[in-house]
Design a protein around this nucleic acid. Structure first.
Lengths: 258, 258
DNA sequence: CCAATAGTGTCTCTTAGACATTATGTA
DNA sequence: TACATAATGTCTAAGAGACACTATTGG
């Protein structure tokens, strides 16, 4: 039967993807958190070939019964026990350079996740070694990451630094449901790597509609001294407008700071 | 030989991706242009199953010898004869919902391309029907696009509308190498679907460092009347700062206009 | 001259950045 | 009390939006 006259049903009955060149699809996660005052990313030590023994982003092959998003959410849950609602998960991009995986033509769709400071990532059933590394350590020249994961982490870092300007995702770095404006400012300072003027930061975040809602309680610092601070929780805003301009958006700052 | 004691070379010699579930990787392009004063997207009429006879984004399977970017650039060249330098090409995202392609588990990495108003897309060797459609027509309820391409076009449209705020890509819509500020403003007005105040737009784009460089010539309008306008060409800026705020970034405008 | 578009100037209001001042907590 | 941090207020300069005005073209 010629292709021309086949119905779509007939075509699909005869169709077999296996005839074509073998390819694979994986997801990889850049799970960011703030640990010891530094922006950090979760890595796992690979227990199998390829890159056995090297550090890599958590991830794995996508099951053909799940979407990419579901595969990423599954990995996030496995590694951090965070559900997609508590944490934050967003597609970063897809990496498909031939040769990036020695097993064959395997494209990987990378996701960015944000996590609060969780004590120890759940190692999962497999006895994999998993822990958070400071970003600057991971991106240093002598840190030997598997695959093209250094590229992915670099892109993920850029994404996070740019996105906290206009998306209300910074609270995802904070463990508690409620937080102070100083804690929020601290997140921005760590992610951007610059100091912010507290009073101006306060004015700006408070002027953003539905970004922060006052909880009505105060928290006294664990350090000696200092006025108790008001607590806030994340509001319903889905955009920060006007954005909190960081060093990513202004070329004049970016030139000197990165 | 157990997996435990294999070297990486031995592992890879035995490894065969074909053993796993069959998957496919395609690229799809949302090639935007401005035609008849409307933002438009290139569609091709599918000559083969699946979705034979329906309109779809140009694209196809990725060759395992090329990167995703190269595959997208190849498609762009085939469809519009634009090289990646003249046009503009950027990864949009990857779509992997099971069932999106009836042939099997096929993920598609979508790219956004911008093209000047080209007369007729090169139909290519294959006798496919290909032409630009106005965005609002394509995204109307009764336009029956193949696959999940309506989702991809919607996302691509959002990307373009957001990105012309801070990236100097608007000139890519203009055929000529040099252009007037009115022509540039026209691009923004069409993409955003709003009217801009000419004098304020002029002041803002001219204040962006290295965005526009004067050519030193004037162009007289083809219409009767009107002062001759200065010509500019795209400069070396890779970011527009401060951004040209459109309706995408300001929730108060977005609410009423979309 | 008129009509039409390009380009300049001006006014006001908002916002950002810098920093002073006041408030409230602990040692 | 001293000290530390939170919260508020103030000043100035830059930028945005609205719109008036001038310049240059063709008919």
């Amino acid at each position: 039967m010629s292709d021309e006259n086949m119905t779509e049903e007939e075509f699909l009955k005869n169709y077999d993807l296996r005839k074509y060149a073998p390819v694979g699809v994986t997801v990889d996660l850049t799970i960011f958190t703030i640990k010891n005052g530094k922006l950090s990313v979760l890595l796992i030590e690979r227990g199998d070939h390829p890159f056995k023994g090297q550090w890599a982003l958590p991830g794995g092959f996508v099951d053909t019964t799940e979407s990419l998003e579901e595969a990423a959410a599954r990995e996030l849950k496995e590694e951090t026990n965070l559900s997609i609602e508590d944490g934050y998960l967003e597609q970063l991009g897809t990496y498909g350079r031939p040769g990036r995986d020695p097993r064959g033509f395997i494209v990987s769709t990378a996701y960015v996740a944000l996590a609060p400071n969780i004590e120890t990532p759940t190692a999962g059933d497999d006895a994999r070694n998993a822990r958070f590394f400071a970003i600057d350590e991971v991106l240093s020249k002598d840190f030997d990451l598997a695959f093209d994961h250094a590229d992915i982490i670099t892109d993920g870092l850029d994404r996070v630094r740019a996105k906290i300007e206009y998306a209300p995702i910074a609270p995802k770095f904070i463990s508690d449901d409620s937080f102070t404006i100083s804690e929020l400012r601290n997140v921005y300072e760590i992610v951007w790597g610059i100091q912010l003027v507290p009073s101006n930061f306060r004015r700006k975040v408070q002027s953003v509609k539905d970004f922060l809602v006052p909880v009505g309680e105060k928290r006294t610092s664990d350090l000696p001294g200092g006025r108790a601070s008001d607590l806030y929780k994340a509001g319903s805003a889905d955009v920060i407008y006007p954005p909190l301009r960081g060093p990513m958006s202004d070329p004049s700052i970016a030139a000197e700071d990165f």
